[in-house]
């Protein structure tokens, strides 16, 4: 089923908030992509560019005590759930001031104080962890939910079926969000995936929706239904949000891949569906803000990113004499 476009009226302020949150992710990712290509980052970086409407559309209606888990492409989810830009950038830079003090890096940014269980380097790992956090929320009876973000690649891990089974059986307050961006690393969807991902919920009797993941309002409305279902004790929802990965699997992949797995034409054509300009157009056409308002937000975000980069660059690396042994065991 697809969303029915329930009549949701957002205030001008809310609309600009969504725009700001998406743009923050975009500008941070552009910066980190540039830094990575320039060789300024220690590890691999997987960009979320093109998928911002999914993370923002969902996380913008979560509470601090709701849990999210993410994947290797996790900067966007971290920021959308309220993670700090400076702490994120410093972490990716490998600095002592990073959110994980340089022990996790790009693929592992987490802030438990904000319900961000974290990005994860193991494809599909967040699915089971979120299911467990949702069980805890159910035991607490506080109405909190868990949201697992993963890609179409992770949908092919058996753990999704295991999690759909047990979460439906136990009526766990969990939402599985598959951001179908068209690629499992370097393999196009059709070469590694059969059928539709949302359909995988059917045999378990779990709620499921397929939506346009580039349309923030559609994402928001679908998430609102799923969150309501979860908070009401009616169990899980599997959301397949169709989107597109503008960047490669990993920044700099052209330097080591022997060939290509998608055409320039395809990328250009898909980029036309970019969620951010589409959302800007929507705001302007509805008269909810002026171009000057949007430009001002862009300038503010650009300054925020510059400040985060300066913070990271000025921060020391962790001291090799202190290997964080105290972090192994509590």
């Amino acid at each position: 089923m697809t969303s029915s476009g329930a009549d949701t009226n957002f205030s001008n302020e809310q609309m600009l908030g969504f725009y700001r949150d998406m743009l923050r992710i975009r500008r941070v990712e552009e910066q980190l992509g540039k830094d990575s290509l320039a060789g300024n980052l220690p590890g691999a970086v997987h960009l979320y560019i093109g998928q911002e409407a999914v993370g923002v559309g969902i996380c913008s209606q979560l509470r601090d005590d709701d849990w999210i888990a993410s994947n290797h492409r996790g900067h966007g989810h971290f920021l959308a759930k309220g993670g700090d830009t400076k702490l994120l950038v410093a972490e990716v830079y490998g600095r002592k001031t990073g959110i994980c003090r340089g022990h996790g890096g790009s693929m592992h940014v987490a802030d438990f104080s904000k319900g961000i269980i974290g990005a994860n380097g193991i494809v599909g790992a967040g699915i089971s962890i979120t299911t467990g956090a949702a069980w805890a929320a159910q035991l607490d009876g506080n109405g909190a939910v868990g949201v697992a973000f993963f890609g179409d690649g992770a949908a092919n891990q058996g753990v999704l079926c295991e999690a759909l089974n047990v979460s439906t059986l136990w009526k766990l307050p969990v939402i599985f969000v598959c951001e179908n961006n068209g690629f499992s690393e370097f393999s196009p969807y059709s070469t590694v995936t059969s059928g539709s991902i949302a359909d995988r919920a059917k045999p378990y009797g779990a709620a499921h929706e397929t939506i346009d993941g580039n349309d923030l309002i559609e994402v928001w409305q679908c998430a609102a239904r799923a969150i309501r279902r979860a908070r009401d004790g009616k169990g899980p929802t599997l959301i397949e949000a169709r989107t597109y990965r503008h960047s490669g699997h990993v920044v700099g992949e052209h330097t080591f891949l022997s060939g290509t797995y998608r055409s320039e034409e395809e990328v250009e054509q898909k980029k036309a569906g970019d969620p951010i300009p589409a959302f800007a157009k929507r705001i302007l056409e509805a008269g909810q803000a002026s171009q000057a308002d949007l430009d001002r937000i862009d300038a503010e975000i650009t300054a925020e990113v510059a400040e985060a980069v300066a913070f990271a660059e000025e921060s020391p690396y962790p001291d090799p004499a202190d290997q964080g042994a105290g972090y192994m065991f509590a």
């Binding site: 849990w67 888990a69 438990f112 269980i117 790992a125 699915i127 089971s128 962890i129 979120t130 299911t131 467990g132 956090a133 949702a134 069980w135 805890a136 929320a137 035991l139 607490d140 868990g146 058996g158 753990v159 295991e162 999690a163 047990v166």
Partner: peptide
């Protein structure tokens, strides 16, 4: 697979 991971999530959540 989901069981061992649920243990992690439930423990992380208190």
């Amino acid at each position: 697979t989901v069981m061992s991971g649920m243990a992690v999530g439930a423990a992380a959540a208190g």
